[in-house]
Design a protein around this nucleic acid. Structure first.
Lengths: 235, 235
DNA sequence: ACCTGAACACCGTTCAAGT
DNA sequence: ACCTGAACACCGTTCAAGT
């Protein structure tokens, strides 16, 4: 009768989904082959039947995350198309805070990421961009094209934070650092003063992300309209 | 007589410099407390007299790297000041390819980084930026303000690569991926066609970095000139 | 042929025994 | 009081012994 309690048979897909869930809930530092096996009610070595090693497991997890990004919906306006996709990617990353670091540390072009990038280049080309400009624009967007926030100190990268705003009330700047770094203290104040009631509630991450994204896309649009070309490069 | 061969006494500074050298030469994945101790001709536990644990060691290494960035030289032109400093930071990171990932994974504001950021905010303020605009501009620059390249797949992040251009001749895109991702293949071509002689030599990383940096700084200058303010934020 | 437990070669860090 | 070897609690992965 013990057989009746047996779990679904192990598969690469079931392993990847369990690994993503484990990283989401407990943090990427808790993702070990042994912990994952325990979550799957399986002996550690059983996992190696389906993934060659931990690096391949991470690549698979990255592909799972990328596959959650909304497909690109073609539109007459390239800016709208690109913007919408990137905001969707950002929403996915908020659900998987470990993903940016995992992607950067793996430093490998998985098929899913290549397909994502390819479709983004396609959106620029469909918008009338030259291959030359599209090339440099893709470099300039960098990891932001996958929805990365690129903040130096990202509270949401720590243990699974879900909201889009930082809830800690005073934590923005401890008084002793505010004294040593007056410019930082000043702009920290500037962040909170226009929000009525709550003081020092921190930044609206969504606003900062869209501010940066608009800055980039507006600049890109200007280059496109000016017919920018890379010929006659410096050096 | 064996005493005559004794190394200089251990100190936090000597440990940090040895750790940076080890990470530079062998990669961050080779930096273990045990390997580091061996490089220092010391028993592993001796290190713990000077740093509390490995995380504190990493923080110290990050501060060493940040301290190598040229000091900010004030100038009438904020754009020139900021641009020059960031290009200097990038040169430092080229010498320490492990640093960006280490900084992102630590996710901690060390005093050296705070001082760096504070001085950058100061440059914007001296250029006439409001605290409000300076705040959002710092967020928009993100890790780029420390010279991060933010490339999704950065060859220089792998084992200590020193040059500023990728030397591998054909490696840009293997033919089987070029077939599946035509847009990527196209822009890869666009990168190499205007360089005479060598085909598919890859991108000029310095050019791509400056292209992105100019895009950002030009956009920021435009907002500044227009007297941008965050009042009446969306939502 | 397949599965799996033990074992190997590492980690970071604690701790107690030695001086 | 200080130093340090052994030990502990982990890793990812190999491998041989079991079925």
């Amino acid at each position: 009768m013990a057989e009746m309690l047996r779990r679904a048979p192990l598969s690469r897909d079931r392993i990847l989904r369990a690994a993503v869930a484990l990283a989401d809930e407990a943090g990427i530092e808790s993702l070990s082959m042994r912990n994952l096996a325990q979550d799957l009610d399986v002996v550690p070595m059983a996992i190696y039947k389906h993934v060659a090693n931990k690096d391949e497991l991470l690549d698979g997890m990255i592909d799972v995350v990328v596959s959650e990004i909304d497909p690109l919906v073609p539109d007459a306006d390239w800016k709208h198309t690109v913007r919408r996709r990137i905001l969707s990617a950002r929403q996915v990353l908020l659900r998987h805070p470990w993903a940016p670091l995992a992607i950067e540390s793996r430093n490998m072009a998985t098929p899913a990421i290549l397909a994502y990038l390819d479709s983004m280049v396609g959106a620029f080309r469909a918008g009338g961009f030259s291959a030359d400009l599209a090339h440099h624009v893709m470099h300039a967007m960098g990891s932001r094209i996958l929805g990365f926030s690129q903040e130096l100190f990202d509270a949401s990268r720590r243990a699974g934070r879900s909201g889009t705003t930082n809830p800690e009330p005073p934590a923005a700047l401890p008084p002793e650092v505010a004294a040593r770094f007056p410019h930082l203290a000043e702009i920290a104040m500037a962040a909170s003063h226009d929000n009525e009631s709550v003081v020092g509630q921190g930044c609206d991450d969504q606003f900062e992300f869209e501010f940066a994204l608009n800055l980039l896309l507006d600049g890109i649009e200007r280059l496109h309209q000016q017919g920018w070309t890379s010929s006659r490069r410096p050096r």
